[in-house]
């Protein structure tokens, strides 16, 4: 048990990947589940394809809107490099769920620097409870490649004590009705994968 009585989830990705939607779904669920909850991210310039993070914290009482370094219980990486970049936010016994998708930053695309080819291995080496998730493949198999974020949320859901009904309601309320079935299928497949790596919670 963490000395800090909150559960902290850090979402990390690239501007435009849907980290904000995923974190908003989680935050609203936490309210429905009766927790105090805070969510924090930044808008504006940071959204133009740059690195983005979104913090969700819930528990009986949440103070800081941002997760202190080294205290995140979960790191949900929407992109490999961004997962690796934020690995220091994770508690030593925290769980990293990182999408294997790779998006080259402009600094790599322009040839100025190299993308770390072993980003996945580096994540696994640093976090004993890290899981690499091919969320894009899961979403595609579920019939909607855009549901990558749902696959990741599904993987996260396997570790959280929040009922499946609440997840279903939360997602249904946030995605277009036509896409719910595919989103839910992606979520469910992600959840199944996440449960195989389940531990502490």
């Amino acid at each position: 048990m963490n000395a800090n009585p909150t559960t902290d989830v850090l979402f990390a990705g690239v501007g435009g990947q849907g980290t904000v939607l995923a974190s908003a779904i989680l935050a609203n669920l936490c309210l429905s589940a009766g927790y105090d909850v805070k969510q924090s991210e930044v808008h504006g310039m940071a959204q133009r394809g740059g690195s983005v993070t979104s913090h969700v914290r819930f528990g009986s009482r949440v103070w800081s809107p941002t997760i202190p370094a080294g205290e995140a219980d979960f790191l949900v990486g929407f992109e490999l490099l961004e997962g690796l970049r934020m690995i220091g936010s994770l508690a030593p016994d925290g769980v990293a769920l990182v999408n294997t998708q790779r998006i080259d930053p402009i600094t790599v695309a322009s040839g100025a620097t190299q993308y770390p080819e072993d980003a996945g291995e580096q994540i696994l080496a640093r976090s004993p409870r890290a899981v690499l998730v091919d969320a894009f493949a899961i979403a595609r198999a579920a019939g909607n490649p855009r549901a990558t974020n749902m696959a990741l949320l599904g993987a996260l859901s396997a570790h959280l004590d929040i009922s499946l009904d609440l997840w279903e309601d939360g997602i249904r309320g946030r995605v277009p009705p036509k896409t719910f079935a595919a989103n839910w299928a992606a979520f469910s497949a992600g959840r199944e994968l996440g449960s195989t790596s389940q531990g502490r919670h």
Binding site: G50, L81, G88, P116, S127
Partner: peptide, 19 residues
């Protein structure tokens, strides 16, 4: 606060860009 996991140095930056 805590012992943090070391982040590798010199990761490529991802600055915001024109769309």
């Amino acid at each position: 606060s805590r012992v943090t996991v070391a982040v590798p140095a010199d990761l490529p930056r991802r600055p915001p860009v024109l769309c």
